[in-house]
């Protein structure tokens, strides 16, 4: 069965406790950034930022929404990154049997970092700046294999982030969807072939380009091109 996370976005206030708790638990260094006109900071996931709260301000049915999206690895039931990376080195990415966590090992250095990132339907893995490693969220495997919640779930003050068995989380997701539908008729659950399930108040594509696997824009730009343009956004 394994473990699962349920992220109820109708309860997220973007306090970014999860983002800081992740850095704190893993003792990852901060990044020098500058104001880009949004609270989304750092502007993107990186080798040292495994969890990021994304901010967006879309207009839905003529009304402005301020949406928050805690973004990190979804821990796919069948991870494409594992298939890709293990072509280069068997054991570069492993899946924990007990929890289902998808984990990059030291051998990830032998895999093609760019190919691993492209293989991810959610654009999560990030390469090391001056090295061969790639990194992403490891589901706090050290904590969860000792009966604790992942750092980001433990810290969440609003009940947005939840953690438990697959059965519990799927049941909770179903219950919450029914409840929030009363206030948000467009509410919907994200992909269910992953171990991090989201509940969106409005159409997921309003939250982030990588909110759901199908969120790739259908315009002339590919998902990767869109991302490249975002990352290279001129400084405000």
């Amino acid at each position: 069965m394994g473990k699962m996370m349920f992220i109820d976005l109708t309860r997220c206030t973007a306090c970014r406790g999860c983002q800081v708790a992740c850095k704190q638990w893993k003792s990852l260094p901060g990044e020098a950034t500058r104001n880009t006109g949004t609270h989304q900071n750092p502007p993107d996931l990186s080798f040292n930022t495994l969890k990021l709260v994304r901010f967006s301000e879309p207009k839905v049915d003529g009304k402005l929404h301020w949406l928050f999206f805690p973004d990190a690895c979804r821990h796919c039931l069948e991870p494409p990154c594992m298939g890709q990376a293990n072509l280069d080195d068997e054991g570069a990415v492993i899946q924990d049997e007990a929890t289902g966590a998808v984990i990059f090992t030291d051998k990830i250095a032998n895999a093609d970092a760019e190919a691993v990132r492209t293989a991810c339907p959610y654009d999560i893995p990030r390469p090391e700046k001056d090295g061969k490693m790639s990194s992403k969220c490891d589901f706090c495997i050290d904590r969860i294999s000792n009966g604790m919640k992942p750092s980001c779930v433990h810290v969440c003050p609003t009940g947005c982030m939840n953690f438990g068995t697959e059965e519990e989380m799927r049941a909770l997701a179903k219950t919450r969807l029914e409840e929030v539908k009363k206030h948000y008729p467009q509410a919907t659950l994200g992909n269910d072939d992953v171990r991090v399930m989201y509940l969106f108040a409005v159409d997921p594509k309003n939250y982030s380009y990588n909110a759901v696997a199908e969120a790739a824009p259908t315009g002339p730009m590919t998902r990767r091109e869109v991302f490249a343009s975002l990352a290279g956004k001129p400084k405000a």
Binding site: V20, H154, V155
Partner: peptide, 24 residues
């Protein structure tokens, strides 16, 4: 080596905000 929310504390039950989470 680590500072995190106290799950047994009645006020926050383990939860913290971004500032509290950086307490260490």
């Amino acid at each position: 080596v680590n500072v995190e929310g106290d799950p047994d504390h009645p006020v926050n039950e383990g939860a913290l905000c971004a500032k509290g989470a950086a307490m260490r």
